[in-house]
């Protein structure tokens, strides 16, 4: 059985990249589940797609844009209405260490 598609280190890294603080139980569960899903994905390797162009966009639309016009924005109150924390018109977050 090949289960070396994904390592514990990978799960660790993916957790960090996804900004998820995973519990040890979660790490174990996801390692198992994601490994079996990724194994299932291996079937795509059967297909030769060298000459095939990817379908990044389902439609054939091109160059969709708007004129450079200003319309009204939200009020500060509306903008901050959903904020978990705010102060003096700003969103407030725990200290950011640059």
């Amino acid at each position: 059985m090949k289960s070396n598609i994904l390592s514990e280190k990978d799960i660790e890294k993916v957790g960090k990249l996804s900004r998820l603080k995973l519990t040890p139980e979660e790490k174990e569960l996801y390692l198992k589940q994601l490994s079996s899903i990724l194994e299932f994905m291996e079937q795509l390797k059967e297909l030769n797609t060298e000459e095939v162009l990817p379908t990044f966009y389902p439609l054939d639309l091109k160059s969709v844009w708007r004129k450079d016009c200003v319309t009204s924005s939200l009020s500060q109150e509306e903008a901050l209405d959903n904020a978990p924390a705010k102060e003096r018109g700003y969103f407030k977050v725990p200290r950011i260490i640059e």
């Binding site: 102060e87 003096r88 018109g89 700003y90 969103f91 977050v93 725990p94 200290r95 950011i96």
Partner: peptide, 15 residues
């Protein structure tokens, strides 16, 4: 823009 004020344990965000 993030705003950091001296000595505070929070930062502020202006979008």
């Amino acid at each position: 823009k993030n705003v950091h004020e001296e000595g505070k344990n929070f930062s502020l965000v202006d979008l």
